[in-house]
Design a protein around this nucleic acid. Structure first.
Lengths: 153, 153
DNA sequence: GGCGCCTTTTACGTTTACGTCAATTCTATA
DNA sequence: TATAGAATTGACGTAAACGTAAAAGGCGCC
């Protein structure tokens, strides 16, 4: 309401017609809404993951950009690289069945799942190893304090 | 036998007497034995984690260096940074009880353990999220192929 | 006495996802 | 209209743990 004027000004020779009712967001709003920084949004754009419209030089994010950002964040959460995410999103075709996209996503997901499980195993190992070392250290510490006590007595 | 000559040459004005029976290793041997690269060993030295003797310019790793390397590798395995490892090892005093070292190690270990557990939780989340997405994608794929089949019929 | 292997130092490159200025412009508001 | 708050582009910095040349010296061996 206060950030976006209702309707384009007469001077705006926007060649891309803005569909009525589109709730466009500027970068600050977008960042707050999705818990990312401005830098992040610009970075994603730089990497070709987002493509907001422009009002002059000001970025205007559409519903579509929001959907894409959600996907990016989901991808990040499950450990995909931005490159992977881009690769998958680039296959998106609103007119087709997107079978290729889905297949690629599934393929990448299987590999990523394997990586995650492997990582979990490594972490479990580390936890065990570390716990073991910790008891050993605790043991040494109590022995030393016992020695000190006997020396003091 | 072939890498280390038995006994120093007469010209060797080594001020640090080499204890008899010390099995000194050169960098290649060391690397092979512990599964690290030469670069890694030099890097650790550069960071102050190792301090091999020198025969001229050649590094000679003692039993003590081997023990330290083992500690470094253990630390790495459980996720400590080299800086952490160094900080803990720097407290080592062969003449004292090393209580301070042990306390620091325990302190750092507790924090690292917490980090590891947090990481594991994140990974579990990611695994669940990813598995969910994967079934959704599989579902979509089967639906699409079903549609194709009905179209074909 | 030349070949190959080991070793040395120096130093720049790699990876990922941004952080952090800096300088400038635009916009809204009191 | 002055001032503050957004926004822009550009560019360098960061973290970790090495990788990868490059150029050179030393040593054993046939």
């Amino acid at each position: 309401m206060k950030l976006i004027s209702a309707g384009e000004t007469a001077a705006n020779t926007n060649n891309i017609p803005v569909e009525a009712g589109e709730d466009l967001a500027r970068i600050g709003e977008m960042a707050k809404k999705y818990g990312v920084t401005l830098r992040t949004l610009r970075f994603y754009e730089d990497k070709g993951l987002l493509n907001p419209q422009r009002d002059g030089s000001t970025r205007l994010y559409t519903r579509r950009d929001k959907a894409r950002l959600k996907l990016i964040l989901l991808g990040r959460k499950v450990g995909f690289s931005l490159r992977d995410v881009k690769q998958m999103m680039d296959l998106y075709d609103p007119t087709g069945s997107n079978t290729k996209q889905l297949r690629l996503a599934l393929d990448k997901s299987e590999k990523q799942l394997a990586r995650l499980q492997k990582q979990r195993a490594l972490i479990d190992d580390a936890i065990n190893e570390l716990s073991g070392s910790m008891s050993a250290v605790r043991q040494m510490l109590t022995e030393r304090s016992a020695t000190q006590a006997s020396v003091a007595s």
